[in-house]
Design a protein around this nucleic acid. Structure first.
Lengths: 238, 238
DNA sequence: CACTTGAAGTTGTCAGACAACTATCGCGAA
DNA sequence: TTCGCGATAGTTGTCTGACAACTTCAAGTG
């Protein structure tokens, strides 16, 4: 087919990875290169690409492993619920780790997103969601300090800002979520224990109260495959 | 920070790409490797990763270029409308290319998705959507031949299966779209003129008529950045 | 003017080598 | 026996240098 070793190689590698059981080690790079008829440098470029896609994971001194998937969490997007609630509804076991709460001040971007003056005091909540003890989502919420004080959280926070606000009786009506796909930045990649640039599903959303005011500005990053988000779309909305 | 050249390199490269105007050529690999203090092999691995993310494009003999973005198309996902309709609503200029219509027979997967017997005659419609003359989406629709005959299309098809069905007065009620992020397969990558494995936003959806029967099985692949899909999520659906 | 030829510059691929790290096995000490 | 530890083989990470394939453009040729 193709005259470029790299493209042939990607097809061969894809097939090899597909038929290799998750968790199993691939043959070593020198052997694989010989077996596939390319140099180790070219093979490594292809492997880097597959690692960026999240299909394999390389560990120096140990080997290259095919990554496996756990059961997917499925949810309709039109229902606003926390990942914790969603997991409980499905009877799955998720946990929260790397919880980080800090007080910051609004820069231009945050001020615009939250509709507050620049340099306003804000509260930022970051954490990693784990399923099957593997990181599957990285969530960053930013709220005005007036809405959520860092000290408030320490008392009774289980990982979901939404659940916390609802439990407190706050006015929360809806959220507008933008969905996209991106390669993970350094911060996100580190949190999710993947490589910078790996394929991630990305939500950028704003939470509104019943008066239409922005309550929360949220960035969510999901490793594909662990979640199934779906939307019901209807014709002729009027 | 990091002891691994590759991670430092990714940070440096990301910065360099970010501050380089779209469309402009980067300095050559040997020069860049010297400038960043790594070998050309390591640099090329990092560049492969960024190419997989769709941030740069390499052309043999010519150079490496930073890719630019056109204005994004924005749409609410809960409204089911074709990309063409959406573009017209926004006054943007999109076109259809690489239109391919073929008659196939249902394999196990298609039979399950469309709820028809295996080996049933089906019609498959594939095409590329272009904005600013660049490929931005790849769409594959598969329908029972009874619903859509290949010959029907030749008369009056403008790129959207949904618009065609609606214009014909078919019963189309809603669609269930699963949203995910994937690395492009060989077929998709070729159609979108990107590298296999590049980050793409992916919709897998079924179109239902008013009786709840599956009318169309659709796979959509979007290059991130050209589209802004959003969903309004509400609390306490009952 | 149209066409060819060549050179310079670029990315694509290769081979071999060494460094850094990991897992494992065997042996000696407690 | 059991624990700890060092040697060792095997793996990925990185480097160097080289050549092939391709693109571009300008000079030369008819």
């Amino acid at each position: 087919m193709s005259n470029f070793p790299f493209q042939r190689l990607q097809a061969d590698l894809a097939e090899l990875i597909a038929k290799t059981p998750p968790g199993q080690r691939l043959v070593s790079e020198p052997d694989l290169a010989k077996q596939l008829g390319v140099s180790r440098a070219t093979l490594r470029e292809a492997m880097r690409s597959f690692e960026t896609q999240g299909l394999i994971r390389r560990r120096q001194g140990s080997g290259t492993f095919v990554v496996g998937k756990v059961q997917a969490l499925d949810s309709g997007l039109e229902v606003l619920e926390s990942l914790e609630t969603m997991a409980k509804r499905l009877g799955l076991d998720v946990s929260v780790s790397d919880l980080n709460i800090e007080a910051i001040f609004a820069d231009t971007e945050l001020a615009a997103a939250l509709n507050v003056p620049e340099d306003s005091p804000l509260t930022r909540v970051r954490r990693v969601i784990r399923a099957d003890n593997r990181p599957v989502a990285y969530l960053v919420d930013t709220l005005p300090e007036k809405t959520l004080n860092p000290d408030d959280l320490l008392a009774d926070f289980h990982g979901s800002v939404l659940d916390f606000l609802l439990a407190r009786g706050d006015s929360v009506a809806s959220s507008r979520a933008n969905v996209s796909a991106i390669g993970g930045t350094a911060e996100v990649a580190k949190a999710l224990e993947v490589q910078r640039g790996d394929v991630l599903l990305h939500f950028y959303s704003q939470l509104f109260d019943h008066n239409g005011r922005v309550v929360d500005y949220s960035l969510s990053y999901f490793i594909p495959g662990y979640f199934n988000f779906h939307v019901v779309r209807r014709v002729g909305i009027s």
